[in-house]
């Protein structure tokens, strides 16, 4: 310890030139004095500033606490929703074997809107055996293919033509679940 302080001896001669010492004193010497009023004003202002910051600190702490709590709750909710219940994909039916479903449904709906509402249901009983089944569609298809005289009553969908669309509508009439075959 004493060895260390020996290096900072005030009496040590560093060999500085007197002219340099004089110039340095002129530059950095304490020739200016701060008035006491200015000193107090600076200290007061600093105190006010730090008091304000000190008052604000509890609010910021509460905000941080609230944010942390909110983050925990959000994380918990995300976990809950992510793991609860079977996924939509698992319970979704595999419908790749029924590709023309939209088209089928359209024609099925067409049957409801034309035959059941606008036309007599008996018009779909082509073979007149008292029931509507696939044989009615089959026989209508045969009539159309053989280019026989097409009767107006075979225009099942009411579009003014007797063609394959009428056969489809008739076939859908045969497979409807809510009919009594």
């Amino acid at each position: 310890m004493s060895d260390t302080t020996e290096h900072f001896d005030d009496e040590a001669d560093f060999g500085a030139c007197p002219k340099l010492a004089e110039d340095l004193n002129a530059l950095f010497g304490s020739g200016l004095s701060v008035p006491a009023e200015v000193d107090r004003a600076v200290i007061d202002r600093a105190n006010r500033h730090f008091v304000r910051r000190g008052r604000r600190r509890p609010w910021s702490r509460w905000a941080a606490s609230a944010a942390a709590a909110a983050a925990v709750i959000i994380f918990a909710v995300v976990l809950e929703t992510q793991f609860s219940g079977p996924s939509e994909q698992e319970s979704k039916p595999d419908q790749h074997f029924s590709a023309p479903l939209a088209e089928r449904k359209s024609k099925s709906d067409q049957f409801v809107s034309t035959t059941l509402v606008g036309k007599a249901r008996l018009a779909t009983d082509i073979d007149e055996n008292g029931r509507v089944d696939i044989l009615d569609a089959f026989k209508l298809a045969r009539h159309i293919e053989s280019a026989e005289t097409r009767q107006a009553k075979w225009d099942i969908n009411g579009d003014g033509q007797v063609n394959r669309d009428d056969v489809d509508v008739l076939a859908f009439a045969a497979v409807r679940l809510d009919k009594g075959v």
């Binding site: 419908q95 074997f97 569609a137």
Partner: peptide, 12 residues
Amino acid sequence: EPGYYDPAALAN
């Protein structure tokens, strides 16, 4: 080709 069927039969 799949035959005619009522689309309502799916999920039934």
